[in-house]
C-alpha cells in the first residue's frame, strides 16, 4: 500500500503521468520499429518460411522434443540425487553429513556449463568413452539441480513441526524410517511449488546443450536461421516457445501453492530461493 485511494487531483496527476508514460513507451517502440524497418527486418521473405514451410515446424518440433527429453531425464535424476543429498546433509553421522555438505555447496557454486564440459570433454580423455551430448547435458543438469533440490527438500523438512519427528521416533521408527516415510512425503508436498519453479530453471538450462552440439530447440533454430538468414525472427519464435511453456509451469506452481494453502489453512510453502536461476 504505497498510496491512498486517490482523490480528484491525484487521479488527474496519475492520468497525466500514465499518458506521458505511454507516449514515452510508444516513442521507444517506434524508434525500435523504425530501426528494424530501415534494416528491412519487416520484409515478408524473413517470415514466409514460418507460414509456408511445414518442415520448419517439424524440425523445431524435433528440437523441442529433445529439449523436453533432456529436461525429463534431468528432473527425475536430479530429484533422486536431491533426496539422497538432503538425507546425507540431515544425517547425524558426521562421515555422511560433511561430504554431503561439501558436494552440495561445490555443485551449487560451480557454473553449470563447466559441469557439462566436465562430462563432455573429460570422459573421452580420462575414461576413454565418448558419451552422447544428451547424457553429458543430463548429468550436468543432474548434479547442479540435484544440489539445489537437496537444499529445497532440506528446507521443506526443517519447516515441518518438530512434533512429527518426535512422534515418529517415539513410536519406534528408526531415523531413516522417520525421514523416508514421515518427513519426506510431507516435505515434498510442501516444496512442490518450489520444485515446479526449479523445473522452469532446469528447462531453460537444457538450452546450454547447444554449446556441446546437442540438437535441442536452440541449436535447431540456429541451423535453420543460417539458411533462412532471419536470426531475429527465428530466435524470437524460440523465445516465445520457451516463454509459453514456462508461463504454464509458473501458473501450475501458483495453482498448487494456492490449493495447498487452502487445504492446510496457512502459508506453509517456503519461497523458492532466487539463487536457483541457473
Amino acid at each position: 500500500m504505497l498510496y491512498d485511494v486517490q482523490g480528484p487531483r491525484a487521479r488527474r496527476r496519475t492520468l497525466v503521468g500514465s499518458i506521458v508514460g505511454s507516449v514515452l513507451l510508444a516513442l521507444l517502440a517506434l524508434v525500435v520499429a523504425k530501426r528494424l524497418a530501415d534494416q528491412g527486418q519487416f520484409d515478408g521473405d524473413l517470415y514466409r518460411a514460418f507460414v509456408e514451410e511445414p518442415q520448419l515446424w517439424t524440425r523445431l518440433g524435433e528440437g523441442l522434443r529433445n529439449t523436453l527429453t533432456a529436461a525429463a531425464y534431468g528432473l527425475v535424476l536430479a530429484t533422486v540425487t536431491g533426496i539422497v543429498l538432503a538425507f546425507g546433509r540431515l544425517s547425524t553421522v558426521a562421515v555422511v553429513r560433511i561430504p554431503a555438505v561439501a558436494v552440495i555447496e561445490f555443485f551449487r557454486a560451480t557454473p553449470l556449463l563447466l559441469l557439462i564440459f566436465a562430462f563432455f570433454l573429460a570422459t573421452p580423455i580420462v575414461l576413454g568413452i565418448r558419451i552422447q551430448p544428451l547424457w553429458a547435458l543430463v548429468l550436468g543438469l543432474t548434479l547442479y539441480n540435484g544440489a539445489v533440490i537437496a537444499e529445497i527438500i532440506r528446507a521443506g523438512i526443517l519447516s515441518l513441526p518438530r512434533g512429527q519427528t518426535e512422534a515418529a521416533l517415539a513410536v519406534g521408527l528408526t531415523r531413516g524410517q522417520t525421514l523416508g516415510s514421515v518427513l519426506l512425503p510431507q516435505a515434498v508436498r510442501v516444496m512442490l511449488p518450489s520444485l515446479i519453479s526449479q523445473l522452469v530453471v532446469l528447462l531453460k538450462d537444457t538450452s546450454l546443450g547447444f554449446i556441446i552440439c546437442f540438437e535441442e530447440l536452440l541449436r535447431v533454430g540456429g541451423q535453420l536461421r543460417q539458411f533462412l538468414h532471419n536470426p531475429i525472427q527465428m530466435y524470437v519464435v524460440i523465445a516465445l516457445i520457451y516463454i509459453a511453456i514456462n508461463l504454464l509451469l509458473g501458473r501450475l506452481a501458483t495453482y498448487v501453492e494456492g490449493r495447498q494453502r487452502a487445504r492446510l489453512g496457512q502459508a506453509v510453502t517456503v519461497q523458492p530461493q532466487p539463487a536457483d536461476l541457473g
Partner: peptide, 15 residues
C-alpha cells in the same frame, strides 16, 4: 525471465 539466457545471448549476438 522465462527465456533461457542462451536465447537472449543468441538474439543479441546474431540478431
Amino acid at each position: 525471465r522465462n527465456t533461457p539466457l542462451t536465447v537472449v545471448f543468441a538474439l543479441a549476438v546474431f540478431g
